[in-house]
Amino acid sequence: MNDIDIKGLNRDFESRVRLGIMSVLTVSGEVTFNDMKQMLDLSDGNLSSHANALEQNGYIEVRKSFAGKKPQTLYIITKSGRDAFSRHIEALSRMIGKI
């Protein structure tokens, strides 16, 4: 899974959308599909495809449930997701000489 380059950057976090999802989850821990969509200003399909990719790599957990009759999707950050993302931020910071 973890595809790390020479500089320590994680290729799984290269897209803006994934950076956004991981940033939001790092702060909040868990966020619903609708909240995430609004915060990152994304389309349904765009968000779910990137979220699925993050889930397959074990960075987040996708939990589906029902709120009344409406299906609700919840994104939750995993321990390994948190660790991988903080290493990614460290690598980025090293590159701009801020660490």
């Binding site: 702060v27 915060m39 990719a53 701009i96």
Partner: peptide, 25 residues
Amino acid sequence: MQHHRTSKPEEDISHIRQMMERSTS
């Protein structure tokens, strides 16, 4: 999925910071 590195680390960092801020509002 192709892996072109298009953005600079500065931009990534500021994007992350902005998203983190927005997620608390």
